[in-house]
Amino acid sequence: MCIKPVPDPKQADKMTIDGETGTMIRRDIPFVINPLDRHALEAAVQIRERHGGRVTAVSMAPGDALPVLKESLARGADRLVLLSDRRFAGGDTLATACVIASAVRHLGAFDLVMCGDETTDSGTFQVSAQIAEFLDVPNIMHVDDCRVSPGDGLRLRSRTEEGAFTAEGQFPMVVAVTVDINEPRYVTLMDVLDSESKEVVVLSADDLPLEEPWIGLEGSPTRVLELFEPERKNRAEMLSGTPAEQAEVLADRLRRMGFRNG
């Protein structure tokens, strides 16, 4: 299953743009596991508990993310593979998917690649489908129920704008999950202690059979021209007074606009 460390979304307010380079500064924001990836990991671990197999957590991240990523072992992954190399840095979704897919291939036969639908620090929803394309296997997104059925089959429910549909697929497959798929387990001290002895593998670009040039910033088809702050045109009229006084003014305004009669 795939996992990504992201700047703690609860502290994203601290991000600023470097005025000179136009790049993002995320000083002092601790990294955490992308929240949705915990659900993907839980789904993978539940399948292993029912049907056997081995869960490998794969992450492309800088080496210093290792302590944060080890949470995946405490949460039930059997091993952690960190893909870490300066050459991977700055990649767009295509370059990210290219590296992760070649690592998945390198690690041997697989039945299922579980991902979160999206990450809080990119929000593109693109990587799971692109990993599947590089692996040349089917994919499905927005999954909130995933069960293994007899004969290497998968029964999945995917939620879209129109509602939900239930689908049957076959291994191998890439499945991207939503927050509704499960409640990630509570991690105990025993889980953490048990995880200490689990296998951690760090791979660089030299360790991977990277057959294509779509790697890192250089190999990314997209380029960020600039980051900019949108015009802040409409500073609010600020009410003053106690909470009750402010509430009274707002209630009055809403009545006059016809939002509440009586």
Partner: peptide, 22 residues
């Protein structure tokens, strides 16, 4: 949309081209 994002992501990867999201 659910469909648009899935299809576009996979197509961009198949054509090895760039995709800007949302």
């Amino acid at each position: 949309t659910s469909m648009g994002v899935d299809l576009a992501a996979r197509l961009a990867a198949r054509l090895r081209t760039g995709l800007s999201g949302h």
